[in-house]
Design a protein around this nucleic acid. Structure first.
Lengths: 217, 217
DNA sequence: TAGATTGTTAATCGATTAACAATC
DNA sequence: TAGATTGTTAATCGATTAACAATC
């Protein structure tokens, strides 16, 4: 089944979860098919781009009909591993870490957070979102024992590199990094950065410019 | 002073906060200048790209010396409005919304959250991170009265469009959207989307592929 | 001065969009 | 069949990287 497709471009990959959310809503509304033009209109994309993105997942549409909603869901789940949950740990039970622990939509994205770790002894022992907070020195053992591959890093900037290294040496293969720091890890370890301020920069600048031009009349 | 520069590309804009964090750390360590090569090494970028990005902000380096750390900080603050805080409201006091309310690094990015709003009456009246949670029907009045321009939207997907419209009709000019939904707003309103799953998709797929090849290996 | 580093032009790469033939 | 919609090739656009002259 899992025929080998060409590698999927980063740009397409970023859009796949958007399609996924969108077609799930369609399914909830009872729609069975959707055309690229409809997707494009509702997600503010170019129809050709939608066709190309969907083609990259391996699904095939039908002229005059469109794409099967169920197939799109299935394809994205297969490709991104949203169907079978993989275990994860979370390091850094601060504000953002706690929010992610409490957030229960993760399971539908194939993420099953087993436990959290924090260096603050006042946080150790707490239960947040149903997971216990352990001290950092338990990290290595738990990750090894349970073969956890994914780590979510939500610590302050100055602690991030050190903790990333501990995660890696414990066996973590992919780090979802929320710290505003560029991590240096061995090349077999995958890092993806989610920096809240990257998107905020454009918005902030646009508002600054608007205010300035309004002031100048 | 604020000589008009060419518009800054989205790609450059996204990197500016990274430079900003980086040079602030340098300043903390007592460095007064930094070369493009050093920035590139530490942030895993191309040196030419660093020079171009910094040039886009209007700052000028010195051959054999590099760039003034203080000038980089100043330039980014000017450009992105990180220097004088603008007021904001937050709509949706769920997990993520609460985390953002508790996060106190916002001020250094020019964001001053005045108040939160939520449709859940059990949340109304709470104080989270020092801000009160108001019912949605107070939104319009507060935004108008205080001329708030920036809104942070942290509600579930199915409520996002409706609340975005209320924000817009109250006078909000820029929406920082965290809901996994494409908002439709008048063209004079700026929307920037921060979707946690956009970056996660690439990581998840890479782990899926790794696991598959190991299994076949 | 010699040499390190900037600033900028040119080349490459990748992503988006346009055009259109293939299909049902 | 006629016509809507897909799939794909070609054109455009924007961003990254390479090359190198200008500068201190």
């Amino acid at each position: 089944m899992a025929q080998d497709l060409a590698p999927i471009s980063p740009a397409t990959l970023r859009r796949l979860p958007d399609y996924y959310h969108y077609v799930q809503r369609l399914r909830g509304e009872g729609h069975e098919t959707v055309s690229a033009a409809e997707v494009a209109r509702d997600l503010h994309l170019d129809p050709t781009q939608v066709r190309k993105d969907l083609a990259a997942t391996g699904i095939v549409g039908r002229p005059r009909v469109g794409f099967e909603v169920a197939e799109v869901i299935e394809a994205v789940e297969q490709l991104l591993g949203f169907n079978d949950a993989s275990d994860a740990i979370l390091v850094g039970a601060g504000n953002l870490g706690q929010a992610l622990l409490r957030y229960d939509g993760f399971k539908s994205y194939g993420v099953n957070i087993l436990a959290a770790f924090d260096s603050d002894s006042r946080k150790v022992g707490l239960r947040i979102g149903g997971r216990e907070v352990f001290p950092i020195d338990k990290l290595q053992n738990l990750v090894r024992r349970l073969h956890v591959r994914l780590g979510i890093l939500t610590v302050p900037a100055d602690a991030a590199q050190d903790l990333a290294e501990r995660m890696v040496s414990a066996g973590i293969e992919g780090i979802w990094n929320f710290a505003p720091v560029t991590l240096t890890v061995p090349e077999n370890v995958i890092v993806e950065n989610t920096r809240l301020y990257e998107t905020f920069a454009a918005l902030s600048q646009a508002l600054v410019k608007k205010a300035r031009s309004a002031r100048l009349g």
